[in-house]
Simulated scan of single mutants.
Amino acid sequence: MAELPLRDRAGNVLLAVRRVAESDLPPVPASLVVVVHAGAVLMMFDRHREQWELPGGIREPGETARETAARELAEETGIDDVVLTFAVVAEFDLTRPVRRELLAIYRTELATAPRLTLSEEGLGFRWWSPREPVDPDMSPLDAEIAARATT
């Protein structure tokens, strides 16, 4: 695992990844999902940021962090009806706009490889092992979160 804080090419910084009880999770603006199959993590290539990232996104009004994770996972990958386990909370300093933000990170482990469906946000999928190096076109922040959420 990398030493924190960890910075990406846009200047965003992953400050901390902490284990907390889901009941102690403060309101968060977004959730990410670490999907694990055969020891590898599902990454999707984001059309706008042009990098491999974890599936997830922004919370809609009235949603819980868990509901956001489930909805975003289904919208971005076609994966639905899976058991999501709250894993960690990640703390960031983000650049656009400048802000400090907490994100809820959920995890699901799949026994069989899912049939994946692209959304308008993604250009592709890949399975990445946290034991592999982080490619230059992968978010080092998301890779670090995935590595920490799978151990």
Rank of each mutant, 00 (worst) to 15 (best):
E22K: 08
E22V: 12
D24L: 07
P26R: 01
P27D: 13
P27E: 12
P27T: 07
V28Q: 02
V28Y: 01
S31W: 12
S31R: 03
S31T: 09
L32S: 13
V33M: 11
G39E: 03
G39R: 05
V41R: 02
L42H: 03
M43H: 14
F45Y: 15
F45W: 12
D46A: 12
H48A: 12
Q51C: 12
Q51R: 15
E53C: 13
E53W: 00
L54H: 08
P55T: 04
G57D: 09
E60I: 05
P61H: 09
P61T: 05
T64A: 00
A65Q: 09
R66V: 13
R66Y: 10
A69L: 11
E75W: 10
E76S: 05
I79M: 00
D80P: 03
D81K: 14
D81C: 06
V82Q: 10
T85G: 03
T85W: 03
V88E: 07
V89Y: 00
A90S: 15
A90F: 06
F92Y: 15
D93F: 04
L94C: 04
R96E: 11
R96K: 05
P97G: 06
V98S: 08
R99E: 14
E101R: 11
Y106E: 11
R107Y: 00
R115Q: 13
L116K: 01
T117H: 04
L118N: 01
S119L: 09
E120V: 14
E121N: 09
G122Y: 10
G124P: 00
G124M: 00
R126K: 11
W128H: 03
S129C: 10
